[in-house]
Design a protein around this nucleic acid. Structure first.
Lengths: 237, 237
DNA sequence: CGGGGCTTGTGACAAGCATCACGAGGGCGC
DNA sequence: GCGCCCTCGTGATGCTTGTCACAAGCCCCG
């Protein structure tokens, strides 16, 4: 079938080509089929809001394709980005599992395909399928870990350059041992600022400084690390 | 039986008087008995280190009695306290479930009773007992939530008074509708500073300011909120 | 009761950064 | 092609707070 957002909508998890090795995708067949029965597939355009902090949990969203921005906002309107979710991740699981309101906001950053599962059916599913429940626990653990990492970044470093250096290293962590690692990312300075908890102007200035010192260059949406060791020094001390 | 730290060591979870309504304590009988079989009970003095960030996970600790300080430390030796764990909480579950190194350090803040469970046996236990696994997921969700709350506090507020006000309100959240809520806590200014990510001197100064303005008074280990609405105003805007 | 060692209180100073303000570039629709 | 809006670049300014330095309590223990 066709789709309004430029890609095929895959309706069946069992034969899905998007499946990654992460989380629910890698369930044994019986669990996967059960999962397939209770899910609702849907496509969303960029900028769609899946849920807002404070809402009581309707259920979980499993991200098949695209990127989703997870953020939280203060009373004054200041926004902090918690993470950019990648395909394979499950969104809104904390709230759904614990029954408390969503504590974060999820917004698609580009056209996305998602599977939605209602809260009750998801909880039932977890109870029936022990291996799925264990996967869920693992997923929650990962979320905790990334949260702790962000706490470290926010709480244990005073300078904005240090936090930005840490973020750049994080982004290029998967590119092993290249002379000049390159990463594509479609984030504005404003959004980067919201990740590391600083102002847009500071990000601009620090990036300009990095460019001048030949440490890292962000051109268009391509980030190139020129001197990884200096970045590591910035983070380390 | 006697105990070196001034309280009885309860050896059997099923008949344990310390049981709270939280997490594994409130399991159905069969699961509780299985839990009881694989656990090792032990008492620890104040200042004992249960695990250190970076270690590969040996297993989980279930806190029955006492308080445990969970923290993380930067390369420069700066410490950030993530939370003070209360009885009923499980420590080290993220690392144990996901198999990655402990990302935080756990240190007893007073004499404690803990149950330890080896990683493999714990994972087995979760797989066999679906309701326990669900409880585990709920516990992890709670941890995530408190982590997100701390991220909000660190990332979305620029002033130290604001963060301290938020912390005080958090501490007194359970004391509903008292004219002047009082809370006992045995934390030094240094430790408070490590929770809200500021310096010891700043905590001292802000507390002095709060005292002068009749907002909150910390005397010995007793905290008294004199004017809750001002605190809420500090947090809100 | 008289020391250490830890905690708290306070002043001075400078760095870091948020904020405001404004201008330049670049993409997109009309 | 023209204008509009969003993003990026950059200067000036002042507040917040980290840091250093040191004095005063406080508590525990011999």
């Amino acid at each position: 079938m066709g789709s309004p957002y430029g890609f095929e909508l895959v309706e069946n998890c069992v034969i899905c080509k998007l499946r990654t090795d992460s989380f629910f995708c890698s369930l044994p067949k019986t669990a996967l089929e059960a999962f397939d029965k209770i899910k609702y597939s849907a496509s969303y355009p960029a900028g769609a809001v899946l849920f807002v902090e404070g809402q009581s949990p309707r259920g979980i969203y499993m991200l098949c394709k695209g990127r989703v921005k997870l953020s939280t906002t203060s009373a004054e309107g200041k926004t902090l980005i918690l993470k950019i979710a990648q395909p394979g991740e499950v969104l809104g699981m904390h709230a759904t599992v614990s029954g408390t309101p969503y504590e974060i906001t999820a917004e698609t950053g580009q056209p996305c395909q998602l599977n939605f599962i209602k809260r009750e059916e998801f909880l039932n599913f977890l109870q029936k399928h022990g291996d799925a429940c264990l996967k869920a626990a693992q997923h929650l653990s990962k979320d905790c870990q990334s949260a702790y990492q962000q706490i470290r970044s926010l709480g244990l470093s005073h300078s904005a350059p240090e936090r930005l250096a840490r973020l750049l290293l994080e982004w290029t962590a998967s590119t092993h041992d290249q002379a000049e690692p390159k990463v594509k990312l479609a984030l504005t300075h404003e959004e980067i600022a919201q990740i590391i908890g600083t102002s847009r102007e500071t990000v601009t200035r620090v990036l300009a400084d990095f460019r001048k010192r030949q440490i890292a260059v962000l051109k268009g949406s391509t980030l190139t690390i020129r001197n990884k060791s200096v970045l590591e020094k910035l983070v380390g001390a």
